[in-house]
């Protein structure tokens, strides 16, 4: 009974923090709109490139132009919903010794990183949804594309995969941020994160158009949860195998344990200037 009460209390306080963070994030709404447009632009240009490549061809390597358009549409959605960027600026506060506040309060720095990003993600989704609906309408005029017959299990698997992808991105960003306890240019490590994800997650080009070695590598690594697996579910109506679920679950657990370990070690290493 006491445990339930404590959990309820904790949940209410986190919801309050989330609400506060959401209100705080609202001041950056114009920035978020710019980010949305900048996220859409590169993939929209890729559609022009593929249109030029397909020309009069109906199919290339068993892939139609509509498949390619749907692929990039899904990449934009997945990127919008799961990408995390705080590792590009938050390491500075550790380097500058500005996290003392979190060390003396029953609200840890790790929770602050998560809650802040979740609040920003909520606002992002609110702004992102109408833009994507309009973009879908535009793409439909450009080229007709439709989803295969999907049932509830496909949608559930898709949402779960997106949630896991977001969780993994959060953990990776946290790990990079925490590396600032030791490294001067920790934020630069984010480039390795983006390079690995861009190269090995299946976001570059549709999987059937990839060279054999890259396709094999993509399917063998857990990075596939970021793009390849969710896209498979929607585009090919293929559910992930048990091995896939096991691999991504293990990745989450391993990363989570690593983050906790690095945090524990990092705090001991931390020094501030009396903030």
């Amino acid at each position: 009974m006491l445990d339930q009460l404590m959990i309820k209390k904790a949940l209410i306080s986190y919801l309050k923090i989330l609400r506060f963070k959401f209100i705080n994030i609202l001041q950056w709404r114009t920035e978020l709109v710019i980010w949305i447009l900048l996220d859409i632009l590169p993939f929209s240009i890729m559609i022009f490139v593929w249109k030029a490549i397909f020309g009069e061809n109906v199919e290339i390597q068993q892939t139609s132009f509509s498949d390619v358009v749907l692929f990039y549409f899904l990449v934009i959605i997945i990127q919008g919903l799961t990408s995390v960027h705080f590792e590009e600026y938050r390491p500075t506060e550790i380097r500058m010794g500005r996290i003392d506040f979190f060390l003396v309060k029953p609200y840890s720095y790790l929770k602050e990183l998560v809650v802040n990003d979740v609040a920003a993600k909520f606002l992002f989704i609110i702004l992102f949804t109408p833009v994507m609906i309009l973009f879908y309408r535009y793409l439909s005029l450009f080229t007709p594309f439709s989803l295969p017959n999907l049932n509830l299990s496909h949608w559930l698997a898709f949402i779960t995969l997106l949630f896991i992808a977001y969780l993994l991105q959060l953990l990776l960003s946290m790990l990079i941020t925490l590396s600032a306890f030791w490294l001067e240019g920790a934020s630069g490590l984010s480039h390795f994160k983006w390079l690995s994800i861009s190269l090995l997650s299946g976001a570059l080009i549709p999987l059937p158009l990839m060279p054999e070695w890259l396709r094999t590598l993509t399917l063998a690594l857990p990075f596939k949860v970021f793009y390849a697996l969710p896209i498979f579910v929607i585009q090919d109506a293929t559910l992930p195998t048990m091995a896939d679920w096991l691999m991504v679950s293990l990745s989450v657990i391993t990363l989570y344990m690593t983050v906790l370990f690095v945090w524990k070690k990092g705090v001991k290493h931390y020094a501030s200037a009396g903030g």
Partner: peptide, 26 residues
Amino acid sequence: VEKLDNINQIIPGFRRILQIPRSVFT
């Protein structure tokens, strides 16, 4: 504008346009 931290990301965001031949655009 009051404050817009990503104002300097707008033009780099258009870089993909530079990577492809102009004839791609129709």
